[in-house]
């Protein structure tokens, strides 16, 4: 399958990328790793007029610890995150998620920033960002993760705005991400992430709605001293998960509870 025709330009810096996006107009798109975008182009579900390639923006490929936060550049690839000693030391849950994205070929190309800008409901990193109150830094502003993800494939980004960095709080404590899928390389049918912080547990869910969800009911039950089983039974509270060819909404509610309990048990 052949994508529809488009113009193509390469950016070498954030400034160049934004200038090229502005010049190319509202139908232009950024291409980072392209591991989600290129399949959409081939199926012609996406037909941008122009692609601005940011793979040459090397200034956005980094992992910087700073105080009690970890700053990760948008062009950092999954394979780099999975192996990074800094990530493993300061936010091992991010490395654990990175190692489970797609397959080795996809991890060699796909990027952190691409996952945020694409905002697939089944993306893994958005769950971590929402549950830990991460901040998305663009070329012009800082946006809280809970405000960044608005709906399916829809973010707070303007048409000419570029994701540059994600700032996560450091969290070296017990953690687990369990991604339920039929095939190893597949998207999560449902995923559950848990992270023990000094202030208590944080719990997040993947693919139980149009955007990642923080399971506040589970967190507050844990805070009140509930067992993992009792707390996890609240994981489906208030959810309106999608029904699709992979799973019904009811099954997703069931998975949210089971996977949350397992993640808590395996992390502790």
């Amino acid at each position: 399958m052949i994508p529809a025709a488009f113009q193509y330009s390469k950016a070498g810096s954030v400034r160049e990328a934004v200038a090229q996006l502005r010049e190319a107009g509202p139908e232009a798109k950024v291409i980072a790793g392209g591991q989600s975008l290129i399949p959409l182009l081939r199926l012609r579900l996406s037909q941008p007029s122009h692609l601005v390639d940011v793979n040459g923006v090397r200034e956005l490929d980094y992992v910087h610890p700073e105080g009690d936060h970890l700053r990760v550049g948008a062009m950092t690839r999954h394979s780099t995150l999975a192996r990074s000693e800094l990530v493993q030391r300061h936010l091992p849950l991010l490395a654990e998620m990175a190692a489970q994205v797609g397959d080795p070929q996809i991890r060699a190309r796909g990027t952190l920033g691409g996952v945020f800008a694409h905002a697939d409901a089944a993306g893994d990193y958005p769950t971590l960002a929402v549950m830990l109150d991460a901040t998305i830094v663009t070329d012009r502003r800082r946006v809280a993760a809970r405000d960044f993800f608005q709906h399916l494939f829809t973010t707070a980004l303007a048409e000419d705005e570029l994701v540059c960095e994600v700032v996560f709080p450091m969290a070296p404590g017990p953690h687990r991400y369990i991604k339920f899928r039929r095939r190893l390389y597949d998207w999560a049918i449902v995923g559950a992430a848990v992270q023990k912080m000094d202030s208590g547990w944080r719990v997040g869910l993947t693919h139980v709605g149009p955007t990642a969800v923080r399971a506040a009911a589970v967190e507050s039950r844990l805070q009140a001293g509930a067992s993992f089983t009792e707390a996890a039974s609240a994981a489906a509270d208030g959810l309106e998960p999608p029904s699709d060819v992979r799973a019904s909404a009811d099954y997703r509610r069931h998975l949210a509870q089971v996977l949350t309990r397992r993640a808590l048990e395996q992390a502790a």
Binding site: Y8, K10, I31, G34, Q35, I38, P39, R42, L51, D53, N55, P104, Q105, I106, A108, R109
Partner: peptide, 11 residues
Amino acid sequence: AVKSCNMLALQ
């Protein structure tokens, strides 16, 4: 290792 169907030649 990369999937060559998932990259533009120009990349």
